[in-house]
């Protein structure tokens, strides 16, 4: 019979054993701009967690590589210990010089260097584009607003949500102060991050506060301590102060 088994446009679609099709996917484009699209460039450079950005990541890699190379060429570096292999690690260091973050960056593995974020004062680094570019690209800095009352609450939320990462924190908050502030340590501990004490020695002589240029060929030492897991939160500041003094 002619037509039997042939194609008829009015026939319902035949099942081929596959489940009936669900709603067809929409052919309309849906635009999802990057979440930081409406933020100024200097804010984008300092945000944490960082929104993936090919050009920024490439420039950051290049600048970091260059900065560490120059640091290594100029300063003999001694590294004692290493940070633990864990997902959420906060390296908590003393702070006396602009060279401190570079000294720590030069002391850790490349994998950690890629993901590390150095908490840096927003009012010092991220108010002008020039310093924001320098801080973000060369020193992996992210913005911490020490003048804002709610900043610690914001960071507490961010740290709880982060599943992995490495932070470098200078809890003294300034190169001119040697004691750690309790608040940021409290936030780190309560957010479940592993606090690793880090003592940096020699950078204060290599580039003292108030001096325009650094003095090359000074010996620098970076010491990583054991994680402060068992130390009660209230005693963290004292524990860190003791570690820094012992390894000065």
């Amino acid at each position: 019979m002619i037509g039997q088994g042939g194609y008829n446009p009015s026939d319902p679609p035949q099942s081929m054993g596959a489940p009936p099709p669900s709603d067809p996917p929409s052919l309309l484009f849906r635009y999802e701009p990057m979440p930081d699209l409406d933020r100024p460039l200097r804010e984008r450079l300092g945000q944490y967690p960082r929104v993936p950005d090919m050009t920024f990541d490439a420039l950051r890699t290049l600048a970091r590589w260059l900065a560490i190379l120059l640091f290594r060429l100029q300063f003999p570096l001694e590294v004692r210990g290493a940070p633990p292999q864990a997902d959420r690690v906060a390296l908590v260091a003393n702070h006396a010089s602009h060279l401190d973050s570079l000294a720590v960056l030069a002391s850790i593995s490349e994998r950690r260097r890629r993901e590390i974020a150095v908490l840096a004062a927003k009012d010092y680094f991220f108010e002008r584009l020039r310093t924001a570019v320098g801080g973000s690209f060369f020193a992996q800095a992210v913005s911490f607003d020490r003048t804002r009352y709610t900043e610690l609450r914001r960071w507490s939320r961010i740290l709880r949500e982060q599943e992995r990462g490495t932070l470098l924190v200078f809890p003294s908050g300034s190169r001119r102060r040697s004691e750690a502030h309790d608040a940021i340590l409290f936030v780190l501990a309560k957010s479940g991050w592993i606090i690793v004490p880090v003592a940096i020695a020699g950078t204060a002589e290599a580039w003292p506060v108030g001096r325009a240029v650094w003095r090359p060929f000074r010996r620098i030492r970076v010491t990583f301590g054991e994680p402060a897991g068992e130390v009660p939160t209230k005693e963290l500041a004292a524990f860190l102060g003791e570690f820094w003094r012992a390894n000065a």
Binding site: E32, M34, D53, M54
Partner: peptide, 18 residues
């Protein structure tokens, strides 16, 4: 182009952008 890709969301597709 980066601005266009960030605005349209294409920037998430690295290979296309590259």
């Amino acid at each position: 182009f980066k601005e266009f890709a960030r605005a349209s969301g294409l920037y998430r597709e690295r290979l296309f952008v590259l």
